[in-house]
Amino acid sequence: MQSPTKEELEESIKELTEYKNRLEKEVVTISNKLKMPKEKINAIIKSHSELNQIKIILSKLNKQKKNVTSSLIA
Results as ranks from 00 to 15, higher is better:
residue 49 S to D: 12
residue 61 L to K: 11
residue 53 Q to S: 14
residue 60 K to C: 14
residue 69 T to N: 05
residue 71 S to D: 10
residue 65 K to C: 04
residue 63 K to N: 14
residue 71 S to H: 10
residue 42 N to C: 08
residue 20 K to V: 03
residue 39 E to C: 08
residue 14 K to G: 05
residue 45 I to L: 06
residue 71 S to W: 02
residue 39 E to V: 04
residue 28 V to M: 09
residue 52 N to Y: 02
residue 28 V to P: 01
residue 40 K to R: 08
residue 39 E to T: 08
residue 71 S to T: 12
residue 50 E to D: 12
residue 60 K to I: 13
residue 14 K to R: 12
residue 5 T to A: 04
residue 46 K to G: 04
residue 38 K to R: 12
residue 2 Q to K: 15
residue 21 N to D: 10
residue 68 V to K: 00
residue 41 I to F: 03
residue 61 L to H: 03
residue 19 Y to R: 05
residue 44 I to P: 00
residue 66 K to Q: 13
residue 7 E to N: 01
residue 31 S to A: 13
residue 18 E to L: 11
residue 62 N to G: 07
residue 17 T to N: 02
residue 11 E to N: 08
residue 25 K to A: 14
residue 2 Q to A: 13
residue 43 A to C: 05
residue 12 S to L: 10
residue 42 N to Y: 03
residue 47 S to L: 13
residue 14 K to W: 05
residue 8 E to Y: 03
residue 70 S to N: 14
residue 51 L to P: 00
residue 4 P to S: 08
residue 59 S to P: 00
residue 27 V to I: 15
residue 46 K to P: 01
residue 64 Q to I: 09
residue 58 L to N: 04
residue 74 A to G: 11
residue 26 E to Q: 04
residue 46 K to I: 01
residue 63 K to C: 07
residue 18 E to Q: 12
residue 13 I to A: 05
residue 4 P to A: 09
residue 31 S to F: 02
residue 63 K to T: 07
residue 74 A to M: 11
residue 59 S to F: 01
residue 65 K to R: 11
residue 23 L to S: 06
residue 45 I to P: 00
residue 74 A to P: 07
residue 26 E to Y: 03
residue 40 K to E: 11
